[in-house]
Simulated scan of single mutants.
Amino acid sequence: MARQVLVGVRRDGGPIGFWVYIMANRRNGTTYVGQTDDLARRVHQHRNGTGSDYTRKYGCKTLVWAEWHETRAGAFRRERRIKEWNRAWKLRLIEEMNPTWSDRLEHYLG
């Protein structure tokens, strides 16, 4: 997993960089892959039903995996690759870093 490296700070105090992330509705349930430059804000949007129609429809409110990238292009490429993966590969990616499927927002931002 790419570790967060501070290359600069946004006005709100967050790092300049980009996240690829996976939200889920339960263990081995429905997953959603996305990317953002503000992980806390984006997860909050998903949890409040304003993140995407897909996460609202399927109740994907738990951040189960994330990876930080220095560039938007790098995050975009990684997001697209993961979206092309079959389900088993995505589940394995989550299980390797988060075998309990617990919410990881504080882990990534804390």
Rank of each mutant, 00 (worst) to 15 (best):
R56Y: 03
L39H: 06
T71L: 02
D103S: 10
L6G: 02
G34I: 04
A75V: 07
A40R: 15
G17V: 09
G8K: 12
Y58C: 05
E95K: 13
H44L: 06
N48A: 13
Y32K: 08
I22F: 01
M97R: 14
Y58L: 09
H44P: 01
V43E: 04
W65R: 12
Y108T: 09
A88D: 15
Y21T: 06
L93I: 13
V33M: 05
E95M: 04
G34R: 03
S102M: 05
N25F: 05
G49R: 07
V20T: 15
R47V: 07
Y21I: 05
I16C: 14
Q45Y: 02
R3A: 14
H69D: 01
T71Y: 02
L39C: 06
A40S: 14
L105V: 09
Y58M: 07
Y58I: 05
M97E: 13
G51E: 00
R104C: 09
D103N: 14
K90P: 00
K61D: 11
E67Y: 14
V9Y: 09
L93D: 06
R92K: 10
G14Q: 14
R10H: 12
R87I: 12
T62N: 05
L109M: 10
T31G: 01
P99C: 01
S52K: 01
D38L: 10
W68C: 11
L6I: 12
G59Y: 03
A2Y: 02
E70N: 08
V5H: 07
Y21E: 01
E84T: 11
L39S: 06
Q4A: 13
A73N: 04
W65Y: 15
Q45S: 08
K57M: 10
T100N: 11
